[in-house]
């Protein structure tokens, strides 16, 4: 244990030191060897200065660009090619992997579930976040309430899965220790093995992500609500509008842009959802989702072609958002 801690500390220090050394060192080398101070003629100096300052930006952005190309840009194209190849990425098989996927039960269930996740999770998280943000906005204990709702954001999906699996626990004999079954029994119902109860188990898995993401929606929308001009609210109160009318007719229209952003952000997260399904059911009982299906293809069946095809499907799903973002960013920076 002790030796592991020492090794770990050493490795950590080495990694951090080396990366810092790169930037300090490369800038030092640049200043040292492309200095214009030793030159006599003004023309030479200017040329040297220009060369040096032309190189420097690439020292600054170079590592970032390199890492991005290796870890994100190249993989997109590599995956595209793998998806057209066989299980060992050797022979070209055309669209066979895609044809296989769309005819596969697991894939179809995954697509169905991903669509359900996409409809339910962003909508519910945004709705809960909006309601909580609005209701706690002028509450004297609102800050505490918001912190408590926000807290699950810090919990890993796996940790949250343990928390909720405990709630959904089913023993079938003796006293039920799962909160959900205890509530059901207190209301006079029969305890259920929730995790394997199709199709409701899908909803129960979604609850976990809603529980985590509501805090995110609440914080962003809370800030937007605070930005709603005071005079529009006051005017509404003067007109005799009640809280519901203010909420639906004044607040929501003014923060609608933010609602869309929040909804989109959660949507992208949902498309990639993996950990919760992996930890809770591993796709059994018809709870499969795309990311877990891909993991299955890759690491259980060892099929690079099919795994890549599923990855490309996930990629295609986020592409519209990507194009929209790039367009907006280019417009802003023009």
């Amino acid at each position: 244990m002790i030796s592991q801690i020492i090794t770990a500390s050493f490795v950590i220090a080495l990694a951090i030191g080396l990366s810092a050394l790169f930037f300090v060192g490369s800038n030092f080398i640049l200043d040292r060897f492309l200095s214009s101070e030793s030159l006599t003629s003004d023309m030479d100096r200017q040329r040297r200065d220009k060369l040096r300052e032309g190189i420097r930006p690439w020292i600054f952005v170079g590592p970032a660009v390199l890492v991005l190309v290796v870890y994100l840009v190249y993989p997109v194209f590599a995956s595209l090619i793998y998806s057209l190849q066989d299980r060992n990425a050797n022979g070209f098989v055309g669209l066979a992997n895609y044809a296989w996927a769309f005819g596969n039960d697991g894939f179809q269930i995954a697509i169905r579930n991903n669509i359900l996740w996409l409809i339910i999770v962003p909508t519910m998280s945004t709705a809960f976040g909006l309601v909580i943000a609005y209701m706690t906005d002028r509450l004297w204990w609102g800050q505490i309430a918001r912190t408590l709702v926000f807290l699950p954001m810090a919990i890993s999906f796996v940790g949250a899965s343990v928390i909720w699996k405990f709630i959904y626990d089913y023993k079938g004999s003796g006293e039920e220790i799962g909160l959900l079954n205890a509530v059901v029994m207190a209301l006079g119902g029969e305890p259920q093995a929730w995790i394997s109860l199709e199709p409701w188990n899908n909803i129960l898995l979604m609850v976990i992500l809603i529980w985590i993401q509501t805090g995110f929606a609440m914080v962003i929308l809370g800030a937007a609500i605070r930005g709603v001009p005071e005079d529009t609210l006051e005017a509404a109160i003067m007109e005799g509008a009640n809280n519901f009318q203010i909420f639906f007719k004044i607040v929501i229209p003014q923060i609608f842009g933010t609602i869309v952003v929040v909804w989109t952000t959660i949507t992208i997260l949902v498309l990639k959802i993996f950990d919760i399904v992996f930890a809770m059911t591993n796709g059994q009982w018809e709870t499969q989702v795309l990311a877990n299906f891909m993991y299955d293809q890759l690491f259980r069946s060892g099929d690079i072609g099919r795994g890549s095809a599923v990855a490309i499907v996930i990629m295609l799903a986020v592409t519209p958002v990507m194009i929209y973002n790039i367009r907006r960013a280019r417009m802003e920076n023009q």
Partner: peptide, 30 residues
């Protein structure tokens, strides 16, 4: 800083914000 390609890199980074990391698993592992 001013350098050629700056805006392209910027747009690229905005685009990469949403790329699912699943796409990188196989190529990077290989």
């Amino acid at each position: 800083m001013n350098f050629p390609g700056r805006l392209w890199i910027l747009a690229g980074i905005v685009g990469l914000l949403v790329v699912p990391l699943q796409i990188s698993l196989i190529p990077v592992l290989r």
